[in-house]
């Protein structure tokens, strides 16, 4: 059964298939990076192969192969749901070179290619959404490269700038609820600052502090920090 796949490939595609092997029952075929999408499309569409089930796409890093040979192996595993055979397609990608995306052939290649990009830094040209997926965008380097030391620490990342963040909590000094438990007896007694500092300002229990006043104040550092959290202690005004 398994021999048929490789025979068919060699017969139909001829020189495009650079090499084939069958180690421990895993059928493998090598192609050049330029034929990557062409062969993949053939695998999916050929009547005798019908490789419609995407299984996996990953890469292996061989830095010591440079400079004679390309650094990365990229591997694709697919199988046929109807015929129940599978194949591993491999290609070699040089460091810094792009590989054409397979997202147009199998939808499952999307996340798999994003992961390979994330872990190895291999770029897939024409990928619709090539972002990091497991790691965050500020991560430096690509961890599965052999020259990425496992004990390397990453720098701390500052908060991201998000549009319209002003509309989201945390609130300003005169907004929001205090983060402590509300004493309802105080509240019933008319201490509105217990519930909301802005109500407290309205009721004359709190002073409304503007940004310019914070900057002028001798305790501006402390007040700046407070501005990220709810109100100052009630009854200040």
């Amino acid at each position: 059964m398994s021999k048929k796949v490789l025979d068919r490939l060699k017969k139909e595609l001829g020189d495009t298939i650079l090499e084939t092997s069958n180690f421990r029952g895993d059928d493998t075929a090598w192609v050049a990076p330029k034929d990557w999408v062409k062969v993949a499309t053939f695998l999916r569409d050929d009547d005798a192969l019908q490789m419609d089930h995407f299984i996996d796409l990953t890469a292996v890093d061989y830095p010591e192969r440079e400079p004679d040979d390309a650094r990365f192996d990229v591997l694709l595993s697919v199988r046929s749901a109807g015929k129940n055979h599978r194949l591993r397609l491999k290609t070699k990608v040089e460091a810094g070179a792009d590989l054409a995306t397979l997202t147009g052939v199998w939808a499952g290649a999307d996340w798999a290619e994003r992961e390979v990009y994330d872990m190895f830094g291999i770029k897939f040209s024409d990928h619709p959404d090539l972002r990091r997926i497991l790691l965050y965008e500020e991560f430096e380097g690509h961890p599965l490269l052999k020259d990425y030391p496992i004990e390397r620490t990453q720098p701390l990342v500052p908060y991201r700038d998000v549009e319209d963040i002003a509309k989201l909590p945390p609130f300003g000094l005169d907004e929001g609820q205090p983060f402590a438990r509300v004493d309802w007896k105080e509240r019933l007694a008319g201490n509105d600052a217990q519930v909301s500092p802005s109500l407290g300002v309205d009721a004359g229990q709190l002073r409304n502090i503007s940004d310019s006043q914070i900057a002028e104040s001798e305790h501006s550092d402390m007040l700046q920090t407070l501005a990220g959290s709810p109100a100052p202690a009630p009854g200040e005004g």
């Binding site: 419609d52 089930h53 995407f54 299984i55 996996d56 749901a81 199998w106 939808a107 499952g108 798999a112």
Partner: peptide, 21 residues
């Protein structure tokens, strides 16, 4: 079914679409 196969789904998720893999 087609999307599940193309997405690489397996296990109960794929079988629920009618593929007996």
């Amino acid at each position: 079914k087609e999307l599940a196969l193309s997405m690489g789904a397996t296990g109960p998720v794929l079988r629920s679409t009618g593929v007996d893999y």
